[in-house]
């Protein structure tokens, strides 16, 4: 069965329960304690150890009316793409597609090469490199160091780090449980379920919002283009994707490979012929 997330930003109250529930379940440390001044967003981005991230977009009118003032909030997450750049790039096979059709990083296989990091068109996956004694002190509850976890050795791997991102709570799904973020979300802005059902629900939601005069669009319920296909974690937005720090035209990096290999091959052939000629004509 294909499962995924439908994140309806019109229901998001920006409480960040998803961020915390995710960290609690996945036993992830904090990313540091930096005040950004960027609205209420102090975690700033998805990272190797922040697998849900709530974006805050303030759109306040300068003049006195308050009618159209908006404070948009969106809980961002790994998109679990149909064609996933990270998975294609992974040279070890650490990133796999599991039986729930989600893109899963096997921490015991990942060797921390970082190639997935630059291959995600959404800037989601990142290396985790805070799992050492020094860092755990600085960052507080580095629970992967907790003795209760028997596989922490494989999870932490080495000081070089492993890639980290949302697993769509694979380990919870194997128990028939809802992912931690979707379960916690007080207003059910994050909905988890069968993808087909979620997409139907999302389309219906767009229509019902339109009836209320709210213009909304889906991001990733269908093909997002660039060879990526649909997203298993998709969103309902009420502004341009860029407003939420989402790409409007993402591209699957591997689509550039044929051109690259061809150019390289032609150049190499050309130079080889040139060399051959130079050596022979000398």
């Amino acid at each position: 069965m294909s499962t995924g997330f439908f994140t309806d930003t019109t229901l998001c109250i920006g409480c960040k329960a998803c961020e915390v529930a995710c960290k609690q379940w996945n036993e992830l440390p904090s990313d540091g304690y930096e005040f950004t001044g960027n609205s209420y967003d102090n975690t700033s981005q998805l990272s190797g150890t922040t697998w849900r991230h709530v974006a805050f977009v303030e759109q306040m009118h300068v003049e006195e009316t308050t009618i159209d003032d908006r404070w948009l909030m969106m809980s961002d997450v790994c998109k679990h793409c149909t064609h996933a750049g990270c998975m294609e790039a992974c040279p070890t096979g650490a990133i796999i597609r599991n039986e729930f059709d989600s893109v899963f990083v096997q921490p015991d296989i990942c060797n921390g090469c970082g190639y997935c990091v630059v291959s995600c068109p959404f800037g989601v996956i990142d290396l985790v490199n805070v799992f050492n004694a020094e860092a755990s002190g600085a960052y507080g509850l580095a629970t992967l160091n907790d003795q209760r976890l028997d596989d922490k050795q494989t999870a932490v791997q080495a000081t070089g780090g492993v890639a980290g991102k949302c697993t769509l709570c694979y380990d919870r799904q194997t128990l028939g449980m809802t992912p931690a973020c979707a379960k916690a979300c007080p207003t059910e802005s994050i909905q988890f379920g069968n993808l087909e059902e979620l997409r139907e629900r999302a389309n219906a939601r767009v229509e019902s919002l339109a009836k209320r005069g709210i213009e909304a669009s889906l991001y990733g319920a269908g093909d997002v283009g660039g060879g990526i296909g649909a997203l298993n974690a998709f969103f309902l937005l009420t502004d341009r994707p860029e407003a939420y720090n989402l790409p409007v035209e993402p591209v699957l990096p591997s689509t550039r490979q044929p051109a690259g290999y061809t150019a390289a091959a032609l150049t190499a052939a050309g130079l080889a012929i040139a060399g051959w000629m130079i050596f022979r004509n000398a």
């Binding site: 960040k16 961020e19 904090s30 304690y33 102090n42 975690t43 507080g140 509850l141």
Partner: peptide, 8 residues
């Protein structure tokens, strides 16, 4: 830590 990082 999970909360402190959110509003540090």
């Amino acid at each position: 830590p999970w909360l402190a990082e959110l509003q540090p």
